[in-house]
Design a protein around this nucleic acid. Structure first.
Lengths: 209, 209
DNA sequence: CGCAAAAGTTAGAAGCTATAACTAGAGTTG
DNA sequence: CAACTCTAGTTATAGCTTCTAACTTTTGCG
């Protein structure tokens, strides 16, 4: 987007940083995030291990940045989808495409977190952004309110101050989407023989009316 | 259950193995499965690192056994619940209690898998056992069939050879349960302020009629 | 051109998995 | 009971990891 005036050095630095991240994604895809090795990345890039520490303070910082990038890319996909009139079906297609495109990326965000790891404020902001898009995409809902709807009405967070039933709809949209995707991408449907895409579509359909 | 006649040596061996696994669970709870260190376990048990290799061939074998044990405990809880007449609501309560009781254990089974890791036949058998219990607990379903129901009817796996709509119900029960639990236990609801238990109950309620 | 800052180097500490070779002790067997 | 075998544990070691420290080379700016 808005190109900031950069010195050649800064441009080189940015380029190396993105190459490091690319290699990191490759490693995560083949061996998982826990096996990510700064040393191996450096060697594959033709330089010595400690050189990487000029670009990332430590392994955690690299992973954190990968997570932030991944969140950002999902949010961008969401926003792009929401451009031409928002509806939940389109968002559902987008998130599934985004997830299947790079399962390890999905799992880095929504799989097992490292205990004690605290997400940086960036990611929680992006998560709120995602939620806002979903809230806007919720279709008109029936008027009957459940106790949980009342519970939601009485909360302080109120992202967008939507009424309880709308928030409820957005939440179950999100949980149902992840219900199918997380089991599918973690391989819990393999051997069952059915097509997860059909289950996904059927599940999303229940949220549209 | 059925105690097998064991020599003192075998009993000692079994005892040490379970102590190793207990320590492993502690470590997983505090630092995550990826940080599980055989060395640290050994030292905490007052012996030298390589001694553990008498009990587990390698790190993977230990983790595999932890996974199998966890699966077994979930299946046992399921079977116990299904004893006195099966219904989905009771199963839902059981799985949630089981998950919250030890979140790291839940995440070891249903969180990010290690790429390239293949689940041993044990676990897939237990997964089928879980599915069978759920299929039995599905209430009578409406007669109208969706395309996905037809798809399920045409499959070869047919765990229990139930009709499509019944299998469909069991599947969405499972995905919706994990949709809420995986997001909750991975911390994606923190800061939103609502009570996940209420969302869970509301979600389960939609499956009961 | 010359110099300061940045990038990359090797060396090394501390920790990990896992193997090899060895010792001490427990249990079995002639 | 003595001898022998098998097992549990030991230390040593190779090879990997993250990450720090100290040093050298390169690069871009004034």
């Amino acid at each position: 987007m808005a190109e900031i005036a950069t010195s050649p050095r800064e441009r080189y630095r940015a380029q190396v940083r993105t190459e490091i991240k690319d290699r990191a994604w490759e490693q995560i895809a083949t061996a998982g995030a826990s096996a990510l090795s700064l040393n191996a990345i450096a060697k594959r890039m033709g330089m010595s291990g400690p050189a990487l520490y000029r670009y990332f303070a430590n392994r955690d910082e690299l992973i954190t940045e990968l997570i932030t990038d991944a969140y950002r890319s999902l949010a961008d996909a969401f926003r792009a989808t929401a451009e031409g009139g928002t509806d939940l079906a389109a968002l559902a297609r987008t998130v599934r495409r985004w997830a299947l495109e790079a399962p390890h990326r999905y799992l880095l965000l929504y799989g097992t977190p490292v205990p004690g790891y605290h997400a940086p404020p960036d990611t929680t902001k992006i998560a709120a952004e995602l939620m806002a898009v979903m809230l806007d995409a919720v279709p008109p809902v029936p008027a009957d309110r459940t106790p949980f709807d009342e519970h939601l009405d009485g909360l302080t967070f109120r992202a967008g101050h939507r009424p309880g039933p709308v928030t409820h709809r957005a939440l179950i949209f999100w949980t149902r989407v992840h219900g199918v995707l997380s089991l599918e991408l973690a391989g819990h449907f393999t051997g069952m023989g059915f097509d997860p895409a059909l289950l996904y579509d059927a599940e999303v359909d229940t949220l549209l009316t």
